[in-house]
């Protein structure tokens, strides 16, 4: 590379010397094009009228979620969740079928859900960090759905159960190893106040 450049340089200087020697008195035939002024800069795409906001039906500005406060004595959904009343179930990599341990856990959860008939239950599906955001969202949904379907098969009213997938967005363990991954592949069951 450096050799090539210096050879080019040398050749160029020779050429330059010859050119200067031959054409020393000639003025260079440089035709300067006029400097044209382009359309106002910065207008660019913004020059077009802003897209009309045509449909905002159903949209509401974000509100913090709210839950009614109950008497301190009675058990709230939050309190039950903090006590770990409902157990989470774990899954194998890239799988959404229920393992034998998950089936046992969900059997216990079904009984606990029945005990607390005043609350609904949200089932959250989660994944480990491997795989894309988008695929894991679908995978987490499958996991939550598998847990829900099994609870329904045990007699839990479907109307008390809702599901949501968080894909790989809410890891329990931020680690990048098999231990963290196996913990993060899960369905979480949470009591929610009606």
């Amino acid at each position: 590379m450096a050799h090539g450049v210096s050879r080019n340089l040398a050749l160029s200087f020779i050429a330059l010397f010859l050119a200067l020697a031959i054409g020393a008195c000639k003025s260079a035939p440089v035709a300067e094009a006029p400097v044209t002024t382009p359309p106002e800069f910065g207008s660019g795409s913004a020059a077009k009228p802003a897209e009309k906001v045509d449909e905002t039906s159903g949209f509401q500005t974000a509100q913090p979620s709210e839950e009614p406060m109950r008497d301190a004595g009675s058990s709230s959904a939050d309190k039950l969740n903090a006590q770990g009343a409902l157990k989470r179930v774990q899954f194998d990599f890239d799988k959404y079928d229920l393992r034998p341990d998950a089936i046992r856990t969900l059997g216990d959860d079904a009984a606990t859900i029945k005990q607390h008939g005043q609350f609904k239950v949200r089932i959250e599906g989660h994944c480990d960090e491997r795989g894309t955001v988008e695929y894991n969202l679908a995978l987490g949904e499958k996991r939550a759905r598998a847990a829900r379907d099994y609870l329904v098969s045990l007699g839990t009213p479907a109307g008390r159960l809702s599901i949501v997938s968080f894909g790989k967005e809410r890891a329990l363990d931020p680690g990048h190893n098999e231990e963290a991954w196996s913990l993060n592949r899960r369905a979480e069951l949470l009591f929610v106040s009606e």
Partner: peptide, 28 residues
């Protein structure tokens, strides 16, 4: 203001003047 030259043909290929805000250096 800028001009783009072809050094072989010794001519201007393109030349323009842009106007913008001081913070638009990168856009320009």
């Amino acid at each position: 203001e800028w001009r783009l030259y072809d050094t072989t043909d010794q001519k201007v290929l393109l030349g323009k003047r842009y106007r913008g805000e001081a913070d638009q250096a990168r856009l320009i």
